[in-house]
Amino acid sequence: MSIERGRFRRLRRLRQTEGLRRLVRETRLNVEDFIYPLFVVHGRGVRREVGSMPGVYQLSVDQLGAEVEELLELGIGAVLVFGIPAQKDELASEAYDPDGIVQRTVRELKKRAPDLVVITDVCNCEYTSHGHCGIVRDGRIVNDPTLELLARTAVSHAEAGADMVAPSDMMDGRVLAIREALDRAGFIEVPILSYAAKYASAFYGPFREAAESAPAFGDRRSHQMDPGNRREALREIETDIEEGADAIIVKPALAYLDVIAAARERFEVPIAAYNVSGEYAMVKAAARNGWIDEQRVVLELLTGIRRAGAQMIITYHAKDVARWLRSGRIGTALEQALLG
């Protein structure tokens, strides 16, 4: 040993008891960090579990009252709304219809819970007959004509009462188009939470079942980011901030923790990470087979996302984590301390 005996660093000293570990813990989770996704459909009395996402449901508007009551009782104060339209067409007409499913949902949520933060996903893929995020011409997704539809959608969400709009389409220039449209319509105070770094990921499969948004042909690699690129993600984030984004999202989360960390080092805006459907489904499947301790794995994963630099986490685990905390079912003092 090159260091004089007894003089080497004893880092274990601060790990000896839970009290000491709690005092020096660097990263903590809080239920208030979570944004819970909602999938809303037309009809009445609909509460349909998504087969690949146990515990996640498609809900009709009349079912939102009970859902909101549960979320608020659990301390979850923000939702991200996805709508499944009654009809689809090539121009995503219901996306910007004043009486569309998202617009109706926003009005109902704000009526029942004025203080709930209602964020709306702004995209076309759920609403187009071809399932793509933009207008399709000659088999290609065209960028600039799509911007008008996205801007109209964002304004219609703001008119319905949305607290924040979240464009997820990855068209170039969409943040600027939405910002200008919101400002012209008098919604200067409505912020934009941009999916700035959204990757063409294999982790979205269960979401496409929940949102009924699988593309009818091809894929989305012409506009979503290549998984091998990190520097490009920083250019995307910088561009969206310059165009008027108030906060940004990195999506997915677990395979892109390095992107979250790099963005946290470089930019001052709030950062959200989307803990996506495939990440959720894998944990649920492994837990149901008895291969993992679900509570500990979920807490560890979400802590890792938070440690990387995300201050908001969009996650389907939100209600489970809140329930574990409220019911005292968290297995050890360590996990309880992780939740602050």
Score class of each variant (00 low, 15 high):
1 M>Y: 06
3 I>G: 00
4 E>L: 12
7 R>T: 15
12 R>K: 08
12 R>M: 05
13 R>E: 13
13 R>F: 10
14 L>F: 13
17 T>M: 05
18 E>T: 11
21 R>M: 02
25 R>C: 04
25 R>L: 07
29 L>R: 07
33 D>Y: 11
36 Y>Q: 14
37 P>R: 00
38 L>T: 10
40 V>L: 07
43 G>N: 06
50 V>S: 02
54 P>F: 10
54 P>M: 06
55 G>K: 09
59 L>Q: 00
63 Q>T: 10
67 E>L: 08
67 E>P: 05
67 E>D: 05
69 E>A: 13
71 L>W: 05
72 L>K: 14
75 G>Q: 02
76 I>M: 03
77 G>H: 12
84 I>C: 02
84 I>E: 02
86 A>F: 07
90 E>C: 02
90 E>N: 06
93 S>F: 11
95 A>Q: 04
98 P>R: 10
112 R>L: 15
115 D>A: 12
116 L>Q: 09
117 V>P: 00
119 I>D: 02
119 I>N: 01
120 T>C: 15
123 C>I: 02
124 N>S: 12
128 T>D: 04
129 S>I: 08
132 H>R: 02
133 C>N: 03
134 G>S: 01
134 G>I: 00
138 D>M: 00
140 R>G: 00
142 V>G: 01
149 L>H: 12
149 L>I: 15
151 A>H: 09
156 S>F: 02
160 A>S: 10
167 P>M: 09
170 M>V: 08
175 V>R: 06
176 L>G: 10
182 L>S: 06
186 G>N: 08
189 E>Q: 13
189 E>T: 13
190 V>E: 01
192 I>Y: 08
196 A>S: 15
202 A>Q: 12
216 A>Y: 05
216 A>D: 05
218 G>D: 08
222 S>K: 05
226 D>A: 13
228 G>S: 14
230 R>L: 15
230 R>Y: 01
243 E>Y: 01
244 G>Q: 02
246 D>N: 14
246 D>K: 03
248 I>T: 05
250 V>A: 05
250 V>R: 04
252 P>W: 12
253 A>K: 04
255 A>F: 11
259 V>E: 03
267 F>R: 01
268 E>N: 10
268 E>K: 12
268 E>I: 05
272 A>T: 05
272 A>D: 01
274 Y>G: 03
275 N>Y: 14
279 E>T: 11
281 A>T: 13
290 G>E: 07
292 I>V: 15
293 D>A: 11
297 V>M: 12
298 V>F: 06
304 G>Y: 07
304 G>F: 02
307 R>A: 15
309 G>A: 07
310 A>F: 05
310 A>W: 01
312 M>F: 15
317 H>M: 13
321 V>T: 09
327 S>H: 11
330 I>N: 04
334 L>D: 13
334 L>G: 10
335 E>A: 06
338 L>N: 06
338 L>V: 14
339 L>A: 08
